[in-house]
Amino acid sequence: MRHVGAIAGRELRSMFVSPVAYAILTLFAIVAGFFFLASVLGFDAQVAEAQQFRAFDYLRQLNLNDHVIAPFYGIMWIVLLFLVPGITMGLFASEKTNGTQELLMTSPITIWELVIGKFLAASLFVLLLVGMVGIFTGILFFFGDPELPKAASGLLGLTLVALSYVAVGSFASSVTRNQLIAFFLSLVLLLILWMLSIVADLGAGGGAIASDGLVSRSMRWLSSADRFEQMVRGLVDTKDLAYFGFMIGTFLILTKASIESVRWR
């Protein structure tokens, strides 16, 4: 595993020489700032309204965790779903178009070192984005007192979701030499994974599939949406942690297999 650092370091450095990294960071900062502001203003409006109507019970229920942080994270989660494919699309595809695949595959490195190095580089970049969300959350602590454990658990959820996106994106980038195809492939995969629980709900509602049948249950199990919501609500379950570990592991194994298969074709 001693080549992992070299591979991750080169990847990160290359990301920051290209304008794409800065464009993504800027874009994300603007989008996150906008939605953060929207969440805070929405909260403010709710408070004002409750005061106006003297709805003190409702007012007591209003809190920063559930009415600012939760909707904010809920949107950031979807923003990441669209941004992460843009970050990961070049991971392996660009090596193929550059011809540098030939350097990597004829160097005394293992495919695992390559896959983990790339995953690590993209993960660190994505952690910067999650870190920005963390900074926005931190602002709330200056002006109010949200519950720290709950906010931290939500941020952990966001991190895990983002890392599983990176693993899916790595896989998409490894199956093609075209970055645009890699982008759309990972987007589609992520959308499918997201939609699974919604489809399961709809199917169960319409009676097409039994709501507690195997199909419905496995669709719900594969979807990260419910697990993320749990974590935003402050519930960190080992089962959910294991799920994210499973997703990341599975897609990294698939990535390795796809790189190997190119060799044997």
Binding site: S14, T100, E102
Partner: peptide, 12 residues
């Protein structure tokens, strides 16, 4: 090994 197209990273 020097392949037919040198394996270079243009940005480095």
């Amino acid at each position: 090994y020097l392949p037919e197209t040198p394996p270079l990273y243009p940005e480095m």
